[in-house]
Design a protein around this nucleic acid. Structure first.
Lengths: 144, 144
DNA sequence: TCGTTTTCTTGACTGGTTCAGGAAAAGAGC
DNA sequence: GCTCTTTTCCTGAACCAGTCAAGAAAACGA
């Protein structure tokens, strides 16, 4: 759990204005990792019932640009957000229920960052998504 | 270039009915790797002007499920399709213009497939997306 | 406290994708 | 070939996450 004062510090640390919606959004992302926008809107409204969905979308974009939250969007999913930033971690996604879990990098510190042939691209990030079935869906026979 | 006869063979090989729209869609995906759905619709209509967009969407889904084409969807992008399937290759995506290029796997044959902690998931695929700037956008000063 | 700038609210809108029902086509069996 | 059943395609409408726009409210430096 991150206190409002800590969240405020985070915002000031990146030169962003401190507003109630931003505090609430940042808190919600900390409290609910990998939540989609709608879940974040619900969480925000528990403490700030009047918050508009637009304010949440705006806040998420601002916070993402500032590097305070990270946006992830597995194929076929809506956008999800997490507060764990700055490290080189990846995700495993359940094909059945969409659950996302964090995965530390498999092969050392900066793995996969060296593409075999980069086609002249200047690459700054390697994103890894593992696809499979979560424990619950595996045992529930949800696998095709 | 893949001939209509070859495409027909591919369809029969996976027990799919051979229809004009499917041949055209499969041909378009072969001819335009990483094309989005709208581009594929345009390409299909060059040889089959009456094809509905729904037929293209349906064909793409069926072909994807059958494993004849692969659907990729980098974060923030619409769905794109390619005919290179069955090998373990990944993609590099330009942050500026969205161009996608193929990248062979960096670290051996089945890289990254061993997550450090899989949280009990049964993982069947590791998808890698490299993010950066393509040669054109790098030199054009499009980088922020 | 004031004034400027940024942010939030309200409300409408966009665009890729999907849903639904009837018409047409593919393929199996005769 | 011809017919019948099943699958697929077409037309048209709907969905929904996300965005755009304009005015009101809030943040914060002076």
């Amino acid at each position: 759990m991150t206190s409002p004062a800590d969240l405020q510090q985070l915002l000031r640390g990146v030169a962003l204005r401190v507003t109630r919606p931003r505090i609430a959004v940042l808190g919600a992302v900390h409290a609910h990792p990998h939540a989609d926008t709608e879940s974040i809107i619900s969480a925000v409204r528990e403490e700030l019932p009047e918050a508009s969905h637009q304010a949440v979308y705006d806040s998420l974009r601002v916070l993402t640009n500032a590097g305070l939250v990270r946006r992830i969007q597995p194929a076929g999913s809506v956008a999800r957000y997490e507060s764990r930033v700055g490290d080189n971690h990846h995700h495993v996604v359940c094909r059945s229920c969409g659950t996302v879990s964090d995965v530390d990098c498999a092969v050392g510190d900066a793995p996969c960052l060296t593409a075999s042939d980069d086609h002249g691209f200047s690459i700054d990030e390697a994103e890894v998504v593992y696809w499979g079935f979560c424990p619950a869906c595996s045992t529930a026979g949800s696998r095709p």
